[in-house]
Design a protein around this nucleic acid. Structure first.
Lengths: 328, 328
DNA sequence: CTGTTAGCGCATTCAT
DNA sequence: ATGAATGCGCTAACAG
């Protein structure tokens, strides 16, 4: 690796001058600049990021903590983040917890030691411990997917989305509607989507029987199981079901088909997330597009603003789109 | 940020001694060590990776270049990589090309400047330009998904897998079999899987009509379109079709259903990749599990061996599993 | 406009 | 067993 020192010698200037042309800072005579540039060209010299970081305290690296990259939502967010960040010369250091909550803290520390310029947390449920740590550290930080006071975050309007899609079912004539949710410690997906559903039902004077409301986890199988419970445990069976994720909806559909139930005639189904598969299901699934990639881009912009000490809004909400297909 | 200097002062020793206890190198008296450790404990001091890297020339960062994280294969590989690498204290710097071939070279250079300790390339089709560059750089490097001479790589046995699954169809009584492939510049997916298919057909004395062989890209729609072409353009229609990816298979199934064709009675379908959805399709899809996560882990181990100048095999082949389901 | 100097935080000889 | 000294490659005053 050729260093700035050698470039300086070869161009017959001092290291400072080389540094100046490198960073376009300060005055450099045309001739000096030319000579330096020529040498750089010839040698293919590229300054060491290492040394630069040590000096400037900026690494041009953003840490991204996420629960998994095996599902579409975080993958899309990371894609969005990456696009926007690379535009500004930042790269992503990946911290994949594989759903291990303990590791969130661990990685946060690790990223700090790496002196990353900022951190993005793609959150599911959030431990107050981590939140506190983030607040007392003053590293630029943005959270995606969940809300938190005093922390810059970008989220979807889960509550309204849930109300909207529930209203859509009601408008289609359904008055007995089932619900497949997830653990409410996941505020966005578990709590707000459920609240949206229940509030909209109540606003329309509709009852929700206990057996219509089931809880799964983030996989297809538990959607299957939840639908089984809804049908088994209900005297009055609902005519539609709102699953809070597409995967849950897929599982639910899978059970229905196995039971020879027609969709949507016997049971209408809606999901959330606009997964790639949703379009190709039979019937195609009505769902909500949260535009995750856009969320990632926005988060990146927020973070960059924070890094540059520019003013930012604490809360950014990405809009969603109801995608109406034949499952209703 | 507290530095080694301050720790030294607080523990009333020299920086060298602190460094020694930090790295467990050289002699340190029990007392000195204790004092230093106590101070470190108290201050929560963690040495700066920056400075360490500058000194040692090792960053403990691995660059991963990939075409996208929106599909299952690379996501799984990265998950495997991450698991194994984190075990050894390495972190992943992500370089997502978003399918832009030009960026591969660009990112390779960028990662080099970052002084990453090694690079993993999750490859689709490979430009010889890049291969040459890799060879002349002597940075530890492992490629996943494609083969190359003189470059450490881990792949699947695409050829045999293709022959196996084709043979499976033949054994099930099919003698007219269609094929949905991809561009052959993708050696693994495009070339080898096709060759495996054709060779196995030939070995069994079976003809393959031109119209039975279609080419798509890596998405669901092109599977749909390819199946349409197969059915439209063939006088003699095949009774089974081998799609080289699950997504292509899903598209193909989608078209078949729309045409009121029964699967597998009118047309059997097989895919490759063991996508999560494959299990929940109607009917569930026969496919091949390539164990991508394991491939990622192996690649990580290879890379670490290379970094430590340990001997490695140039070529590692991960075994696959035929998953038989109702689509045949 | 340019060079000299200093120092970022650490690991590593080399004396002692 | 320990400390002093040196330098990794770079940027940023400062003085000229």
């Amino acid at each position: 690796m050729v260093t700035i020192k050698e470039i300086a010698k070869m161009a017959d200037v001092s290291r400072s001058t080389v540094s100046r042309v490198l960073n376009n800072s300060g005055y450099v005579s045309v001739e000096s600049r030319k000579r330096v540039e020529k040498v750089i060209e010839k040698t293919g010299y590229v300054p060491s990021e290492q040394a630069k970081s040590l000096r400037t305290k900026r690494t041009k690296i953003i840490g991204v903590i996420l629960p998994t990259i095996q599902t579409e939502t975080p993958s899309r967010i990371v894609t969005g983040l990456g696009k926007e960040l690379s535009l500004h010369g930042y790269q992503i250091l990946l911290a994949n917890t594989n759903l291990d909550k303990e590791k969130e803290m661990e990685y946060f520390d690790l990223l700090k030691v790496r002196q990353v310029d900022g951190i993005v947390l793609i959150a599911t449920n959030i431990k107050s411990e981590l939140i506190n740590k983030i607040k007392e550290t003053r590293i630029p930080f943005v959270m995606v997917g969940q809300e938190a006071e005093e922390i810059s975050h970008v989220t979807n309007n889960d509550y309204h989305a849930a109300r909207d899609i529930t209203r859509f079912l009601i408008e289609k004539g359904h008055d007995k509607i089932g619900f497949i949710g997830v653990d409410e410690t996941d505020r966005a997906v578990g709590y707000w989507r459920k609240k949206g559903f229940l509030d909209e039902m109540a606003a329309n004077g509709l009852k929700v029987e206990e057996s219509w409301v089931q809880q799964g986890i983030f996989d297809i199988d538990s959607g299957y199981e939840s639908m089984r419970k809804i049908l088994m445990n209900s005297l009055q069976q609902p005519t539609a079901t709102f699953a809070v994720t597409d995967r849950l909806a897929i599982g639910a559909m899978s059970y229905l088909k196995q039971q020879q139930k027609r969709i949507p005639e016997d049971m209408a189904i809606v999901g959330v997330g606009a997964s790639e598969m949703s379009k190709y299901l039979e019937p195609p699934l009505t769902t909500i597009d949260y535009q995750n990639e856009k969320a990632g881009e926005k988060a990146a912009k927020q973070l960059i603003a924070l890094i540059n000490s520019e003013p930012v809004e604490e809360k950014i909400v990405i809009d969603y789109k109801l995608i109406i297909r034949d499952s209703v």
